[in-house]
Measured scan of single mutants.
Amino acid sequence: SKWSPSQVVDWMKGLDDCLQQYIKNFEREKISGDQLLRITHQELEDLGVSRIGHQELILEAVD
């Protein structure tokens, strides 16, 4: 995926409302499409996504 960080942010805006709070962290870390495809629970935790349910929603959406 050749998504830029801004495309990742646009994609996140289409996800569940409960995930919108994390967008600024993804933006700050400039998460690209390639990074998103390989993202782990630990990396999500580092991005402030501490709730497992929220991590799962992001990982499922990526899949």
Rank of each mutant, 00 (worst) to 15 (best):
G48K: 05
I23D: 03
G48T: 01
D16Y: 04
D46Y: 09
K13M: 11
L47G: 01
Q55H: 01
D63C: 14
S32C: 14
I52H: 13
R38M: 08
I23W: 07
S32D: 12
M12C: 03
I39T: 06
E45D: 10
F26M: 03
S50A: 11
I52L: 15
K13W: 07
L19W: 00
P5Y: 14
K30H: 13
V9H: 02
V62W: 01
K13Q: 09
I58M: 10
I23E: 06
E45F: 13
M12S: 02
E45R: 14
L19V: 11
E27Q: 11
F26K: 01
E43T: 10
N25L: 12
D10T: 09
L36C: 00
S4V: 05
T40H: 04
L59D: 04
I39Q: 04
W3E: 03
V8H: 01
V9R: 08
L36V: 03
K13D: 05
P5N: 14
W11G: 04
I31P: 03
S50I: 05
G48E: 03
H54I: 00
E45K: 15
S1V: 14
V9Q: 09
I23F: 02
R38T: 12
T40V: 01
L37A: 12
I39D: 05
L37F: 08
Q55C: 06
S50D: 10
G33S: 04
Q20T: 09
F26L: 03
R51N: 15
L47Y: 03
L36S: 01
L57P: 02
E43S: 10
H41K: 15
S1C: 12
Q20V: 08
K2P: 10
Y22S: 03
W11R: 03
D46W: 09
E27F: 06
D46T: 13
E43D: 15
N25R: 10
I58H: 08
Q21H: 08
S50W: 11
L44G: 02
K30Q: 13
V62P: 02
Q20I: 08
I39H: 04
R38A: 14
Q35N: 11
F26C: 01
D34Y: 11
S6L: 11
N25H: 13
D63M: 08
V49Y: 00
L15N: 05
S4M: 08
D17I: 06
D63E: 14
G48W: 00
I52A: 14
E43A: 10
S6V: 12
D34Q: 14
L57N: 05
S4E: 06
E60D: 14
H54C: 01
Y22T: 04
V8T: 05
Q21N: 06
Y22N: 03
S50G: 08
Q20A: 09
Q7D: 12
K2L: 13
S1L: 10
S32M: 06
P5D: 08
R38H: 13
L36D: 01
E60P: 01
F26W: 02
G33W: 09
D63K: 13
L37P: 06
V62K: 07
Q42L: 07
S6D: 15
P5V: 13
Q7Y: 02
R51S: 15
W3F: 05
H41E: 12
S50N: 06
D16C: 03
R38Y: 06
H41N: 12
Q55T: 04
C18V: 11
L47N: 02
G53Y: 10
I31L: 08
V62Y: 00
I52W: 10
F26N: 01
R28N: 12
S4K: 10
I23H: 06
D16W: 05
H54E: 06
M12V: 08
W3P: 03
Q55W: 00
R28Y: 08
V49Q: 01
G48V: 00
S4L: 06
Q42A: 12
R38D: 10
K30I: 05
L47C: 05
L57V: 06
D46R: 15
V8G: 01
N25E: 10
G53M: 14
G14I: 00
E29S: 13
P5K: 05
N25P: 08
D34I: 09
I58P: 04
E27A: 12
K13P: 01
H41V: 13
Y22F: 02
C18L: 01
V49S: 02
M12T: 01
G48P: 03
D46L: 14
L59Y: 04
G53I: 10
K2G: 13
S6K: 14
V49I: 12
E43H: 09
L15D: 03
Q20K: 10
E29H: 14
P5G: 07
S32P: 04
N25W: 06
E43M: 10
F26T: 02
K13Y: 08
R38K: 14
N25F: 12
L37K: 11
R51Y: 15
E60Y: 05
T40K: 09
L44T: 02
L57G: 04
G33A: 03
I23R: 09
L57H: 06
K30P: 06
C18N: 11
G14Q: 09
P5Q: 07
Q35R: 15
D63R: 15
Q42P: 08
I58D: 03
Q7C: 05
E43F: 06
E45S: 14
L47W: 04
V62D: 02
K30C: 11
V9K: 07
D46I: 09
R28W: 04
G33T: 04
S4A: 01
L37D: 08
R51L: 14
L19A: 04
N25Q: 11
S1G: 10
Q20E: 07
L47R: 03
Q7R: 06
L59M: 13
G53F: 12
L57K: 15
E60Q: 14
L59Q: 04
Q55E: 00
S6W: 08
D16H: 07
V8P: 02
L37H: 10
L59C: 05
Q55M: 05
L19M: 09
R28E: 11
L19Y: 02
S1D: 14
W11A: 00
H41Y: 12
H54R: 02
I31C: 00
V9P: 01
G33N: 00
N25D: 12
Q55Y: 00
L47M: 12
L44N: 01
R28V: 10
E45C: 14
W11P: 01
L36R: 02
I39S: 05
D17E: 14
L15Y: 04
L15F: 05
Q55A: 08
I31G: 01
E43K: 14
T40Q: 06
I31W: 03
S32K: 08
L15T: 06
W3Y: 04
I23N: 06
V9S: 09
Q35W: 05
H54G: 01
S1Y: 12
K13I: 06
K30G: 13
